[in-house]
């Protein structure tokens, strides 16, 4: 492990130690804050027979499906907004207004339109992922270098060449920022969808179920899993960005 990764692990380790200490000394009520051992036992039980991997897989698949849908819509929409002034004046204000709606405010509407099943959850996640992807793509495309576009004109670039050679790579840093944010948003939305549209499985469902049964070890386990998975998504996105943007000065 690198020095930096080790340093990053200091805070979680301290928290874990404090948690352990609080449980041992009886400072924390074990009914409200179960000991790390109890959570580990719940994890072991869940992993061996409680269907924990299944719940995790369901959440991740749901997240990725929604994210893919949102990003697939957000990218072309962002490109359209970035490239066309007409599209910007026509769709820009509407998009800005819709964006002001907090993502969780969509839940009642979505529930009415799509029920609370799988479709509704994926639509909700897609909406959460759409905005940052569309917004950052539009911003990146709009800020394409006039100087390079002129170079393109000198070499008689076609529209397709302009997009492929100038707009797309020029906007890539911004697009990846949007994708990264979209991924984070999608994961938050996945949890939200599982909390609020509680039909079915997934880590969020597990947490709610734990709360209802007053099984705090299961709640803690769920929260920890959500954090770890989010962290993993974040790390994967960051590594992908680094790889794709290796032409940039570091």
């Amino acid at each position: 492990m690198s020095r930096r990764a080790l340093r990053g692990a200091v805070l979680p380790m301290l928290l874990l130690a404090a948690w352990e200490g609080a449980s041992r000394t009886g400072l924390a009520d074990p009914r409200l804050l179960p000991s790390p051992e109890a959570v580990a036992a719940a994890a072991w039980h869940g992993a061996t027979g409680g269907g924990l991997p299944g719940h995790l897989a369901i959440s991740i698949c749901r997240d990725l499906a929604g994210f893919a849908l949102g990003a697939a819509a957000g990218l072309p929409f962002g490109f359209l907004l970035g490239l066309s002034r007409v599209a910007r004046t026509l769709l820009g204000p509407g998009f800005d207004a819709v964006r002001q709606i907090a993502v969780f405010a969509w839940i009642p509407l979505i529930a009415m339109w799509f029920g609370i099943g799988e479709t509704a959850k994926i639509v909700f996640i897609a909406i959460a992922a759409f905005a940052p992807v569309a917004l950052n793509t539009a911003e990146g495309v709009r800020s394409a270098s006039r100087d390079l576009l002129e170079v393109g004109a000198v070499f008689r670039f076609t529209r397709a060449q302009r997009i492929r050679r100038i707009f797309l790579p020029g906007a890539l840093p911004s697009i990846l920022t949007g994708v990264h944010l979209g991924l984070i948003n999608a994961w938050l939305a996945t949890i939200g969808a599982e909390y609020f549209m509680t039909a079915g499985s997934g880590i969020g469902g597990l947490v709610i179920e734990g709360r209802d049964r007053f099984d705090m070890a299961q709640v803690m386990l769920g929260v920890l899993l959500l954090a770890t998975t989010g962290f993993a998504f974040n790390a994967i996105a960051a590594a992908g960005e680094k790889r794709l943007l290796r032409w940039r000065r570091v």
């Binding site: 100087d147 002129e150 070499f155 670039f157 060449q161 050679r165 890539l172 032409w247």
Partner: peptide
């Protein structure tokens, strides 16, 4: 141009090849 105006995401050889795109 006065500034090199190279494409930062292309290598030196690819930048020269930009001239041959068409």
């Amino acid at each position: 141009f006065q500034e090199p105006r190279l494409f930062p995401w292309l290598t030196v050889a690819q930048n020269v090849a930009v001239g041959l795109e068409n």
